[in-house]
Design a protein around this nucleic acid. Structure first.
Lengths: 334, 334
DNA sequence: CTGAAAGCGCTTACAG
DNA sequence: CTGAAAGCGCTTACAG
């Protein structure tokens, strides 16, 4: 009810409020007996430090901001689960900022975050423009707030640590898989809009294709399903294709739907692979072969890395790459 | 950089800090000239009030807690988008608490929320047990924190306001649709675990079935795709079925996959409908007919309702039901 | 309409 | 190991 304050605890434990504070935050500085007495009183009174007073006095918030472009993107939710779990372990609260994915984060949001006094920032986005990067660097340098990129890499610089998989290698491996199956007209279906991560996937695709002396063919679709259908239909009329590497599972599934309509059999005529391993991959028929991205882990490891940064611990590798794997289901041969 | 405080503003504007505070929070109490002068200085200095000091002094946080069972559930992400957009409009920050969906929220999380001094709570879950409800009532009464249930209804009581669609009616209407198509052996495929919302859907289904003097048949699946497959196969061998109402889209799609394997044609032999209208419905072939739930709006309206509660404005209807619609695609006849 | 001052509930040097 | 006291940056009666 009317909440107990540190004074109440101090009174009941017959110590000063300074001692109560220490018993909580620096237990080793308090004599065991007193500490236990204080802790017992805290328990009895159900005392919980007021986060504002604590934040104001200590200049630390034990809060992190998570910047998300659009929650409904396939990977965001599971990544949030990973983040939240680790945040809880380290007693951080999570402030959620959903930003407009179309534009660079505005000054407004920056001000909000700074005013909120977060101790760290997690930036979840598979795209990061130079402008956004500059923006993040500014926060980092001007306000000394540590930042971690999660599921993205900024190739130009290591100044802001990141956690993801090696998307270039994933692109290479999955393309190689199709080549090994004997596919020769392999398209990468990527997006019109530029995403850093898709660029990496494309780079991997290109490496595999060139290594095999094949002709690279990159098709760019919008994200919208209806538009894609048009697009794909056209391709079936005009192009020869026996393999498709889609940057997103939903694109792969859309493509398969059009393929079926055109009486193309998967995987006999065309192999199709996705690069996320979302639930779409399992629900699709045939079930989609995929690169499996450990999304939960990316979130969890990203948050863990951020805690280290916030505690000013040394981090050996600013660019963490988690392992991925290929999950071969029914849309590839062999 | 080293951030400007209210003192800096006061000094530069040649007023007291009390006036600066008023210029921001109660502009009408300040003479227009002074107000403008202060505001200009604020702009120049890039001053932004320290959230902790403000929270401590005012005992208000302009922060809401969003309690989520599991971010990766289909509807959560889009609901979050709605919540975040409205939260921004009303200048609330959003603290995210992901709780274990298997158990009642523990005391721990309660303490955290209380310590965070949130002004309001949004509870997103399609299930709410009596225990959880009691828990929420306790927060509400003991700490006077307003709460809104989002996408759930607690049928027993109106004490905690809620925003959702009329799931009973939705269940009724979609079942009625199948009956009107001439279906007679209509199964509702629901979940083993109890969810309030699914109970409502079932109730609607039952009403339609009984009204038509048919025999209700409710099948309960686990959420897991592999288990469902077994389950469905069995049904095809042993039961006659010409209509399926699935409480979740993914269940509907799993069912269709099994149906296809058993050479059952949809919608000629069986009509299938979902009750969410997620992206799965669009990606499936045939495309799934669905109840369309305005998930974004539920989040947005829920957040808006919460702002009213936090401002102690009157709310006329504690149980808000938004409109839904039926989207008929390719898994139903006519 | 404006200012001086108390107070919100903590943390953290500084003494002892 | 413990306490007294200053201070974190605001808000808000209370005077004037």
């Amino acid at each position: 009810m009317s909440k107990a304050t540190i004074y109440d605890v101090a009174g009941a434990a017959r110590v000063s409020l300074a001692t109560v504070s220490r018993a909580i935050n620096n237990p080793e500085k308090v004599k065991p007996e007193t500490r236990e007495r204080v802790l017992r009183v805290i328990e009895e009174l159900g005392y919980k430090p007021n986060a504002f007073a604590k934040g104001l006095a200590s200049r630390k918030s034990t809060t992190v901001a998570v910047l998300v472009p659009d929650m409904s993107r396939a990977s965001m939710a599971e990544m949030m689960n990973g983040i939240a779990d680790i945040a809880r372990v380290y007693k951080y609260s999570v402030l959620l900022y959903i930003m407009d994915s179309e534009e660079a984060p505005e000054e407004d949001i920056l001000k909000e975050i700074v005013a909120a006094q977060v101790d760290g920032i997690l930036y979840l986005n598979d795209e990061i423009t130079e402008k956004q990067y500059t923006f993040l660097m500014k926060i980092k340098n001007e306000y000394k707030i540590p930042i971690v990129l999660t599921n993205t890499i900024y190739p130009e610089s290591d100044a802001i640590p990141s956690v993801s998989i090696d998307y270039e290698r994933a692109g290479y491996e999955i393309t190689k898989k199709l080549i090994d199956e004997g596919r020769r007209n392999i398209y990468m279906v990527s997006t019109v809009r530029k995403y850093m991560v898709n660029d990496l996937k494309e780079a991997g695709y290109l490496r595999a294709i060139q290594e095999a002396s094949l002709t690279p063919k990159i098709m760019r679709t919008s994200g919208r399903i209806s538009i894609n259908t048009e697009h794909f239909n056209e391709y079936f009329r005009e192009h020869k294709v026996d393999g498709v590497v889609a940057v997103r599972d939903s694109i792969a599934v859309s493509f398969m739907n059009v393929a079926r309509k055109n009486h193309v059999h998967i995987p006999d005529d065309i192999s199709v692979v996705g690069m996320q391993n979302t639930k779409y991959a399992l629900l699709a028929r045939p079930q989609l072969s995929c690169v499996d991205v450990p999304i939960y882990d990316i979130g969890a490891v990203g948050m863990r890395l951020l805690t280290k940064l916030m505690n000013e611990e040394a981090v050996d590798e600013p660019r963490v790459m988690l392992d991925h794997s290929l999950i071969l289901r029914d849309t590839t041969r062999i």
